[in-house]
Amino acid sequence: MATTQAIQVESLSKRYGKNVQALNQVSFEVGRGELFGLIGPDGAGKTTLIRILATLLLANEGQALVNGWEVRRDYRKIRSHIGYMPGRFSLYQDLSVEENLHFFATIFGTTIEENYELIRDIYVQLEPFRKRKAGKLSGGMKQKLALCCALIHKPVVLLLDEPTTGVDPVSRQEFWEMLKRLKEKEITILVSTPYMDEASLCDRVALIQKGNILSIDKPAGIVSAFDKPLLAVRTNDMYRLIHDLREFESTHSAFPFGEYVHLALRNAIWPEAIHAYLAGKEHTDIEIKPAQATIEDAFMELMTQE
């Protein structure tokens, strides 16, 4: 067992009805103790994939193993040994924090005391509210409780479906800090997110779009695969700037990026040429500087290549 990967997925496909291809020949592996991110927008197939691994859906084709167990045949074993947190808050709102945790500990055949060590860091933050009904917790607190409930039986693999969606930045950051600490306890974590900026917090990520995996690599690897010269440009008129840059002959792509436009070039040219071009289009306050590609640049590049 120890030699197998924590998660192995081989040519997995899933259709809903006739027309919706949720997953298309997806393959990847997650090593033991790895924090693996599944990054993609809504409708990319993240939830479907996680549900197949959680034995809640059956794939149409392909194979998937969790901790060496096959998801269709050995579903009972998998269910006893994984922690699963669905995308929606799925605890009992009318039970208190303590009651929820006690309930999930018991149905997994364990007790809170037995694995308290594992959740202690997270649970101490909830402790002051332990008599409060789960439905009355703030968004971030709910996520922490859900994580505790998914961890209470000391799972070997943790499947988290968009745990940070709809949660404010502070809670998001805290949540990722918790995942980092869990990783140190050798729990394999597969986490999905639509937020591209969270990719850099994972060991490795798979970028996924419309049921296809665009790329699998370390975050740094994905960014460095973006090989076009990249500039950040801004002027007084954002809207015209985007359109004018797209008509520029050396432009590969131009996308707004916050207060700048990220301009990817077909070939390296002098910024002065761009400056002159924009000045000719009556832009003022022109600023052009080299830019560091982000996961989003890489994602968009991969999307347009499709």
Binding site: R79, S90, Y92, Q93, I107, F108, G109
Partner: peptide, 13 residues
């Protein structure tokens, strides 16, 4: 509807 069935199904119950 609340999604708790999903969690129960994914448990050994």
């Amino acid at each position: 509807e609340l999604g708790t069935m999903e969690v129960l199904l994914a448990s050994p119950l």
